Amino acid sequence: MSAPIKVMIVDDSAVVRQVVRQTLANAPGIEVLGAAPDPLFALEHMRRQWPDVIVLDIEMPRMDGLTFLKKIMAERPTPVVICSTLTEKGAQATMDALAAGAVSIITKPKAGLKQFLEDAHSDLVGAIKAAARANVRKLIPSLPTIGADGVLKVPPKLTADAIISPGLGTGAGMIGTTEKIIAIGTSTGGTQALEAVLTRLPAVCPGIVVVQHMPEKFTALFAERLNSLCQIEVREAKHGDRVRPGLALIAPGGKHMLLSRSGAQYTVEVVDGPLVNRHRPSVDVLFRSCAKFAGKNVLGIIMTGMGDDGAKGLKEMADAGAHTVAQDEASCVVFGMPKEAIKLGGAKTVLPLERIPEAILAAARG
């Protein structure tokens, strides 16, 4: 048997520390080393035994979580899962933490905290297990849920069929267009990977559609951050937005995003719907719509992330004549989604992260 994942909890809320500790105590393969009310207490404990994963709050006394994260990543890089409130201030601080090297986010409300953390058991356990496998040096997302009654509740793992049917769209092959589309799907480690790719693109490049697994409220801030760093325009997608050169549209958290087509122009649809591959937005949903309505005019790219969301969709794009790319293992934070896409035969090319921008520019040249 492999050694358990050793976890340190750092949160100034006694309720959070208690509930998270109890939750993880019942999770196989996880051992809680300790729970500290602030980073300074945590450091004292961690000097005796260093954890494999840190679950970290942002707003705390004596030393805030962001300062602590930067210290850890500079001195001894360790996977960190941020446990943040869904306030605007908390969301902004969490985005800063992701930019500083945190692996993923678990969101918590300001009210009903204990019940929420009990219901979010599988998200927390899944995030910790993904973080333990993460290559955090490349930084410089779901399992079944347990209800309040303690009964395991396994949601169905729906496919993209729940949102969009497979096959060529009505009339999609009837009107010619030379407009190119870039479709990107990513999850754990993807915020840093997307920044590395999009900041290297010139102001004029094909229109880009992106699914990054991320909760509500965070995608808009993420898009704003990228927009401030990139030559291209980056923003959270709205229903009916046109996909045009020089613009990257990020799927909003909590909604699915699909590519659609009107004549020779591409637009996006932002819709509600069930979780697909236990995600909303889902990469498979976006990729299937790209296969259906763009075919060979799209370049599909799957990057770092846990699980298999996007693997089937990338294969559908490849089968529709699109060129498809998977990020290689060496440059991934978590080699999950690209690995599954490669196994299915959906990736025609496997590239390191630093070569993905040139693949996008090559697609622009046809």
Rank of each mutant, 00 (worst) to 15 (best):
A3F: 11
P4K: 08
V7D: 01
V10L: 00
V20H: 08
V20M: 15
R21I: 02
Q22R: 15
T23W: 04
N26I: 00
G29F: 03
A36Q: 06
L40N: 14
F41W: 05
P51K: 07
D52L: 01
M60K: 00
R62C: 06
G65I: 04
G65N: 04
T67N: 01
L69R: 03
K71R: 12
K71S: 09
P77L: 01
C83V: 13
S84T: 14
T87Q: 01
K89Y: 11
A100K: 02
S104V: 10
S104E: 14
I105C: 01
K108V: 13
K108T: 12
K110P: 00
L117N: 03
A120F: 09
A120L: 07
H121A: 15
L124Q: 00
L124P: 02
K129N: 14
A131G: 10
R133Y: 10
P144I: 04
T145P: 09
D149G: 04
G150F: 04
V151M: 12
P156D: 13
P156T: 12
A162P: 08
I163M: 11
I164Y: 00
I164V: 14
P166Y: 05
G169I: 11
M174C: 13
G176S: 14
K180I: 08
K180A: 10
I184N: 04
I184K: 05
I184T: 08
S187M: 12
T188V: 06
T188D: 03
G189K: 02
G190A: 10
T191D: 00
A196T: 11
L198P: 00
A203L: 08
C205R: 04
V211T: 12
E216S: 15
E216Q: 15
A220K: 13
A223L: 05
N227K: 05
L229P: 06
E233C: 13
R235L: 12
E236M: 05
R242S: 15
L247I: 05
A251N: 07
P252Y: 08
P252W: 09
L259H: 03
R261F: 02
S262V: 12
G263S: 12
P274W: 02
L275N: 15
L275C: 14
L275A: 15
V276R: 04
R278C: 09
R280E: 02
S282I: 11
V285G: 09
S289N: 08
S289C: 02
K292Y: 09
N297E: 11
L299Y: 08
I301P: 00
G307S: 06
D308V: 11
D308M: 15
D309R: 03
E316D: 11
G321Y: 07
H323L: 10
E329T: 07
V334I: 11
F335L: 09
G336H: 02
G336R: 00
A341C: 05
K343C: 06
L344P: 07
L344Q: 07
K348I: 10
T349R: 15
R355K: 11
I356K: 03
P357E: 03
E358R: 10
E358F: 07
A362F: 07
A363P: 03
R365I: 09
R365Q: 13
